[in-house]
Nucleic acid binder design. Structure first.
Length: 320
DNA sequence: AAGCTGCCCTGAACGC
DNA sequence: TGCGTTCAGGGCAGCT
């Protein structure tokens, strides 16, 4: 399950291998992956084929390639090719004659290009997705309300795809503001983990990293958001950021650059997880301090939450 | 506003 | 062995 660090690794790979190239042909092998493109497969194909990718941008787990008319370079772009990896999506750069993946959904043929050292770059960009929770679609670009860049990318165009405009900025976005997040957080009457998973409040955090960050910062998932003080907010954001940056550092070095990876599991290194999936195993912070505390798994929001009952005591005024 | 449920989907890991 | 059930997850619609 790719979370933000995995998607950022993909973004960097795409930026390096696809920027400046034209999408010469589009082959849709499974229309279900275009579910969110409401105008249908032919419209998708017609819009994407012949377009040139001018930048690759990400906000939270939404990733998009800014398209410009290959025949009119320099015109202000107005559409983006959006991709969401969902639970099992991959974007792969491969040679066109490489065997087709079992779950290949969309295939984009890229114009010829060479690397810095003059070697030819592979010509296929493939979207592979086993569970089809992810997908691709074309989105209209609109101005960002704050005039800041739409997300993390090379250019600083203040544009955001319509379908991503309701998604909040993520902690790796230079325009992310802890202060404004704090203000909005305090205005909520809910529990901290719910808030962290609310992509409209802060984006890019999934179940695994939420648990990791809560453990690292020592907060219970039901901590009422309206009791968070500024240092509390700073602590949880610092935890989220450091968990993500650690995963990013691991992911960024472990992938073959040409294989713009995105295999869900690859970005995580299970041995590095402190809380998620460690039910019944000792809390490492407690162990370091001479206590034996076993991590617990609790059912929460129809999924699992892992926590240390000593480091993350349930608050008296807990919010579900 | 907030928070439920259900849906989309596959395949691994179970129980019998 | 084989068939059935359960679970996992992000995002969103539709409801209370």
């Amino acid at each position: 399950m790719p979370e933000l660090p995995e998607v950022e690794v993909v973004r960097r790979g795409l930026a390096r291998w696809v920027t400046g190239r034209t999408i010469d042909a589009v082959e849709v092998l499974d229309p279900r992956s275009l579910r969110r493109h409401v105008d249908g497969v032919e419209d998708f194909t017609g819009t994407v084929a012949g377009a040139r990718v001018s930048d690759v941008v990400r906000r939270g787990k939404f990733l998009w390639m800014i398209l410009e008319d290959a025949d009119a370079p320099g015109d202000s772009p107005h559409v983006a090719l959006m991709a969401h990896l969902g639970m099992s999506g991959q974007l792969l750069i491969e040679e066109p004659d490489a065997p087709l993946e079992k779950h290949l959904k969309v295939r984009l043929a890229l114009s010829p290009a060479v690397d810095d050292d003059g070697t030819d770059l592979p010509g296929d960009l493939r979207f592979v997705d086993q569970r089809i929770f992810g997908g691709m679609f074309v989105a209209d670009l609109e101005a960002t309300p704050d005039g800041q860049p739409g997300g993390l990318g090379a250019s600083d165009l203040p544009l955001i795809p319509h379908q991503a405009a309701h998604i909040a900025r993520d902690p790796l976005d230079p325009a992310f503001s802890v202060d404004s997040f704090h203000d909005r957080l305090r205005g909520r009457r809910t529990g901290l983990k719910r808030a962290l998973l609310d992509q409209g409040l802060i984006s890019g955090i999934g179940n695994i990293y939420a648990d990791e960050a809560l453990w690292a910062a020592g907060f219970h998932y039901a901590r009422p958001t309206d009791t968070m003080r500024r240092p509390d907010t700073r602590r949880i954001i610092d935890a989220v950021t450091s968990v993500m940056e650690r995963a990013l550092a691991a992911g960024g070095t472990s992938f073959d650059a040409l294989y713009v990876n995105v295999n869900g599991a690859s970005g995580y290194f299970a041995r590095d997880l402190e809380a998620y999936g460690r039910e019944g195993r000792p809390c490492r912070r407690c162990a370091a301090e001479g206590r034996t505390t076993l991590l617990r798994r609790e059912s929460f929001m129809n999924r699992s939450s892992y926590l240390c009952p000593y480091c993350q005591p349930r608050p008296r005024n807990a919010r579900p």
